[in-house]
Design a protein around this nucleic acid. Sequence first.
RNA 1: GCGGUUGUGGAGAAGUGGUUAACUCAGCGGUUUGUGGCACCGUCAUUCGCGCGUUCGAAUCGCGUCAGCCGCCCCA
Length: 424
Amino acid sequence: MAYQIPRGCQDVLPEDSYKWQSLENTLREFCYLYNFDEIRTPIFEHTNVFKRENDSSDMVNKEMYTFTLENSKTSLTIRPEGTAGTVRSFVENKMYSNPDLPVKLYYMGPMARHERPQKGRLRIFNQFGVECLGQKSPYIDVEAMVLAFSMLKALGINDIKILVNTLGDDASRAAYREALVEHFEPHLEDLCGDCKRRFRQNPLRILDCKVDHDKDFMKTAPSMKDYLNDESKEYFQTVCELLDTLEIPYEIDDKLVRGLDYYTHTVFEIVSVNEEMGSQSTVLAGGRYDGLIPYFGGPEEMSGIGWAMGMERILIALEAEGIDLGSKPELDAYVMCLDKSARTYAFKVLTELRAHGYRADMDMMGRSFKGQFKAVDRAKAKTAILIGKNEFENKQVTVKNIAKKEQNTISVEDLISTMDEIIE
RNA sequence: GCGGUUGUGGAGAAGUGGUUAACUCAGCGGUUUGUGGCACCGUCAUUCGCGCGUUCGAAUCGCGUCAGCCGCCCCA
């Protein structure tokens, strides 16, 4: 094997691409229903779109595919996520001046992150995501969550859990962060190696550490909810009430902090509880971001909310729950050519069938009679169209219904006009 | 980035130093040169992820490398 696909990449082969198409169709239908429009942004952006000031996340700092071409000084980065490019486009195209806010967008496509590959974690993977930009309201947060929940339900995924939390506004979060630093400072020596690093980078993440989980100072750690100002508290309460009203099952997880730095207020995650998922069980996650639109030069007060779904992970979850999204469709007709002299005629009949909307194919290998019949079976063709010397000479075809094992020799015109009945 | 584990044909899989790489499925051809899905026969890996080394001799041992998987980290 001289050539090999790069590590952490995947070819979607035909049998699987039917599943992908089915997934994509369902997602698009729901976006249509919820009045979200598609946006397609480039697969790479200027590096500073992703690498923003004060960003401490691993994704931005050590996992990005960043490159600069020869004879160029421009640093570009293959998108590791979809939000930044979408917000950049929202601002650049002045979509904030749209009279109907929020602007509701969806996207899907490949993202790249240089991580160690694992099941459910690829270097090039596909995300489907939505962003609601330009307005801030608990109703918008919940609309986005309901959309996510409904999509997963429609796909048939049941083994899931919805986790929600609030990070409050910038002021609340800053106060909380300070309190955490104060709390953990005396215990710095007792923290695990990762948490010592987190202490400096993002103290909020210490809270969901698995190593230090049971230690006393974890249990006595200050809780976010004690640092929320009234406005943030009220906002989150409304979100929860709306979810209750719509009977969306969820759990409040005050340890849920999310990895990306731009989140404020509502954050949520949908995890699969199916064991086959392995350690990558989060299938969808997102939250509100107050600062991002202004960061890209949009109106100061504008906020947004969005989430992204890992499409490969959804496919794994579907498989784990035994849900089949479908496979290659059967053929209406398979044309069998039984004599070399009739080949051109057979090819014409094939073309005729297709021109009338019948999904059809024929043997191009000049195989034996038996071999062609096997091809009919593999293609799950509803009919076999047999064409040999006799049919050729009389401008006819022999059409055989595979299931009924009935066959007739008729003219091509009759074949076309009765095809619907023949395949029932 | 760290730790562990695996890697034989289109698929599954035996073989753990001795020379034809077992078996099953799929494919192809034939018995049956125009009616299949059964049966029988034949055929299908000069090669064991890749490279180097040890050896008279390696799929089997050693080193390196690539890749998959599992866990950590992180994340969708």
